[in-house]
Write a protein that binds this DNA or RNA. Structure first.
Lengths: 233, 233
DNA sequence: GACGGCATAGCTGTATGCAGCTTAGTTGGT
DNA sequence: ACCAACTAAGCTGCATACAGCTATGCCGTC
């Protein structure tokens, strides 16, 4: 569980002995808000404001924003501010193309062992998703997706792959979470299917299967995005 | 040529209209020094010292170091300093495993067109490598390798893949450049072979071939590292 | 009424000061 | 001679002040 090469990883360990610095806390919180659509594209991330919220000075906030700038989700311009950006349709396509390639590698590149915790979490998420199918709630949908992503990322043994998996997740999340608001029933149904398949693979102890399940459902998600959002290049 | 998702990319365009900030300049310079072994593992990166060198305050230097911290090549500890780290043998293995998977994708994920500039550069590099074969010079070896990497990265059309390609390059470079010092003749010979094959592929206009050539030679390089450096886990 | 220039408010970029932490060296005691 | 505690130096982490840039709204002019 080395911390190396795992910047964008929220490090939400079971026991969190406060070993992450203030900058990392702020960084992860900003990322979470972006992919949870709490700060949708167009929102200004004012350093002074965030500084007041976290009871720190502008310095750590500035550092946090600077660290996540490489994801392309935030653009900072001098004299103007840091604004949350929606990735261009072409960028989204490239991110998804990358995720389609990375997914099958989850099971082939030294995956980590499946534990009962993983199975339990998957069951819980499935229950939550079933509730979602009846009455859709965008916030809960995003949260379930997020925790499912964390579950799968936890099975990735290769540090580089795990870091890339998180990076592309954050880049893609904002866009297709926005889609969830539009067509709740469809994505809820898809999420239930995905969780059922993942649960089956977990019970079989087959991490490779999970990788391919991801590959399949990322493809479905991308098709939905292409259909409903992406119009221009 | 969007700047999105391309943090670790040195942006050494033909015309560099000074559009990169001071932080980015310092960031790229630090990374260059690390992978050129000018600041070998164990070296302390003192903020005040670098600040004096670039005629700025500690703030931008601090930001630059913070931005590259996610690569695992620098570890900053409070009260101690920022020290250049050698990746653990296991981390190196994982980075190489990742590069072996990424390489074939260069040709399949919307590669960019080959131009005469690419062919000319490859010829120049081959000439330089031939000279190297007679009298080996670690510094020149590293530089040729670096420019070859830049050439290949320039053929990658997918922004995510290009960013990952750069990230894993920096992570791997320091280690196998260290190896170059030890066995000059062998790596020089390998570099000549690689450049000849890349040149042939460029003349055929076959970017996919270049991806597979990379895959092959990364495998060779990794085997050399396993043989000569990696001993512990 | 419309347009151009200007002033002003607000943000980021940078410099600097200070507090806290770590380590190495030193000094005193046993 | 050895060990322990202490002291001082040096570094990072954070806070704050200021300079520079940008956008917006206002006012004067045509």
């Amino acid at each position: 569980m080395a911390a190396c090469c795992a910047n964008t990883e929220p490090a939400e360990r079971v026991i969190m002995p406060d070993d992450q610095s203030i900058v990392e806390i702020i960084q992860n919180e900003i990322l979470r808000r972006i992919c949870f659509l709490e700060t949708p594209p167009g929102t200004q991330l004012k350093e002074a404001e965030l500084a007041g919220e976290f009871n720190v000075s502008r310095t750590p906030v500035r550092d946090a924003i600077s660290r996540i700038s490489h994801l392309g989700l935030v653009e900072t311009r001098n004299g103007v501010g840091s604004v949350v950006m929606a990735l261009s349709p072409e960028a989204i396509r490239q991110v998804y193309a990358m995720r389609l390639e990375l997914a099958p590698l989850i099971g082939t590149m030294s995956p980590r062992p499946i534990t009962d915790d993983h199975r339990r979490l998957c069951d819980d998420l499935l229950d939550a998703a079933l509730v979602l199918r009846v009455g859709f709630d965008p916030g809960r949908y995003i949260q379930i997706n997020h925790r499912l992503h964390g579950l799968i990322a936890d099975l990735i043994g290769n540090q580089s792959l795990r870091a890339f998996w998180w990076q592309t997740y954050y880049q893609a999340a904002s866009t297709w979470h926005r889609l969830g608001h539009a067509l709740g029933a469809e994505v809820a149904e898809a999420l239930v299917s995905e969780l059922r398949e993942v649960g089956r693979a977990l019970n079989s102890g087959d991490v490779a299967a999970i990788g391919h399940i991801q590959r399949v459902h990322i493809g479905y998600g991308f098709a939905r995005i292409e259909r409903h959002i992406l119009t221009g290049p």
